[in-house]
Design a protein around this nucleic acid. Structure first.
Lengths: 204, 204
DNA sequence: TATATTTAACCGACTGGTCGGTCAACAATA
DNA sequence: TATTGTTGACCGACCAGTCGGTTAAATATA
């Protein structure tokens, strides 16, 4: 009357994390369902007990990945109310989380970008909505800058443009680092980013 | 005794340009050989008279695409010897070339990135060597900045880091623009990039 | 406690479709 | 007619997703 019971949610997470690992090593296209199954230590058919399709697995991985990153950043910047310190933390934490995960996790981000941009018009995967993710990121940074301007710490600038620029710089530098670890010293570049953005925002 | 003659090089270029169009619309994976053939107005088999594989077609497209971009930028910055003006032109031309081509061409760049990063260890496609391309780009910008420092126009900075940062900012802002044209005004952001980088480099 | 029963959970052989690459036949030219 | 150039039907490797069969945990029964 009562058969084998497993925690569906826990197992689903196990599969997603196995999938994230495989995606990061092989990329979305070359990663096969059987690879994910093997990594999770289960049979291929079992995946379909928890996910509707490969895309569904991918979307779940995407969401978990970016949610974790966003949480990490928001936790860090909520520790202070000083706009300068918030920006400094945001930049540092962004680069740090990349450094600590190595290039595997960076690789999967590349696929998320590629997939997210390619499917930006199709509403199939609403979890993979990079527009929303970037919008939210921009709002966070814009509000820090606006607050800094209001407090008279920063000179008046177009906060939206500067926010876009900061996000772009973070992404773009990471992109170069993914391509060539030896050419880009992520730790030292952090200081340059902070120097350029914060010093240039300071009111003189 | 003298059979049909076609200009192999011209036809090869026709195929590559058809391929670039198809790649930009569908992406590397979804673009089929038969699509490229149809776009070029030829049979599928003919492509294999000019290219060894799909990857070979992709690599050729890659090379032509980036070479054109690099030529455009180098032509622009060679028109002046003023470091400030060189930087201003480099930023403007980079964004302009993106704007004029629309998002199709931006899409293919995304695939080049993804493909280039994924195969960065495999030496199969040495034409698709993003490391080299970014290195060369960095050299160009570094030399402009160093020259500016030498002339006493710019304050002394780590030119390599600032160059990486500028390239990153250009790429990263374009990435956001690709994702959401409405959220990013590429023309107006150009001014912010110039403002931030050039003003902050100025010696006071 | 041993055994039977129930059924969620699991699995991997199979299917159906896709697509890169080949090649034998065909077309055009001089 | 000899040679270059073209072609698309065909092949086979590949793989996402399916499905019928199996396993084993929890309970019921004696």
């Amino acid at each position: 009357m009562a058969p084998k019971i497993v925690d569906k949610e826990v197992k689903k997470m196990e599969i997603v994390h196995a999938a994230i690992k495989v995606f990061s090593e092989k990329g979305m296209v070359k990663a096969k369902m059987v690879d994910i199954a093997r990594e999770a230590g289960i049979g291929k058919g079992t995946i379909y007990e928890y996910f509707r399709s490969k895309e569904d697995v991918f979307a779940s991985g995407f969401q978990i990945f970016f949610q974790a990153m966003q949480d990490q950043i928001e936790t860090a910047i909520s520790s202070t109310s000083d706009p300068v310190e918030k920006l400094r933390l945001l930049i540092t934490v962004s680069f740090k989380s990349f450094l600590q995960h190595g290039s595997d996790l960076a690789m999967i981000m590349m696929d998320f970008w590629a997939e997210g941009i390619r499917n930006k018009d199709e509403k199939i995967l609403d979890a993979v909505d990079l527009r929303k993710i970037y919008y939210e990121f921009r709002v966070i940074i814009t509000s820090i800058i606006d607050n800094g301007i209001k407090k008279g710490v920063f000179r008046p600038v177009d906060s939206h443009h500067v926010a876009s620029l900061l996000i772009g710089a973070l992404d773009g530098v990471m992109l170069q680092w993914i391509m060539d670890h030896k050419a880009i010293d992520l730790e030292k570049i952090t200081d340059s980013v902070i120097d350029l953005f914060i010093n240039c925002l300071y009111k003189k």
